[in-house]
């Protein structure tokens, strides 16, 4: 399943970069995230509650920055396991200059793979649930960037 979107921020690229590159931001964007542990400069772990409404469970995630080009490109993998299932998300975020000199345009693409019990049993709802989950995460991320940039660099 692939999802994508874009958003423009009224802040320069280096400011936006600094926020999205921060594990704390990623953690805050995930639903009910807790136990953030930064394990290396390019990896961190923690758990989040993934799902929709009552179909929801705690997943332990390992985040790994697979590739980065500061200020412009980030590839982040999140591998989660819980409730007899796996949720693996590969995300590519590209930053580019926006419409004005101080604006940044963020494009994101996410590829999600779900395995185990959720993949089979919730099959009929998976597209829609994954779509909603991924969009919520990026909505949160955008809000966090806006809040962060509003607070000043």
């Amino acid at each position: 399943m692939e999802f994508q979107g874009n958003v423009e921020f009224a802040a320069p690229r280096e400011v936006v970069w600094k926020i999205i590159r921060d594990p704390t931001t990623v953690a805050k964007a995930m639903p009910d995230f807790r136990d953030l542990v930064v394990t290396s400069p390019t990896s961190f772990t923690g758990s989040a509650k993934v799902g929709v409404s009552v179909i929801r469970g705690s997943f332990r995630f390992q985040f790994q920055i697979e590739e980065e080009n500061p200020g412009s490109f980030l590839r982040l993998s999140a591998r989660g396991r819980g409730i007899g299932s796996s949720v693996d998300i590969q995300t590519r975020v590209t930053l580019a200059d926006g419409g004005s000199p101080t604006a940044t345009r963020m494009e994101w693409k996410a590829e999600a793979q779900v395995g185990g019990a959720l993949a089979g049993i919730a099959q009929r709802l998976l597209d829609q649930a994954a779509d909603r989950t991924v969009r919520d995460i990026f909505t949160n991320l955008s809000r966090l960037v806006r809040e962060g940039t509003a607070a000043g660099p």
């Binding site: 793979q113 993949a119 089979g120 049993i121 099959q123």
Partner: peptide
């Protein structure tokens, strides 16, 4: 992707 789709009596 190798996932079993018919994994319960729902399917």
């Amino acid at each position: 992707d190798g996932q079993l789709l018919a994994s319960s009596f729902t399917d």
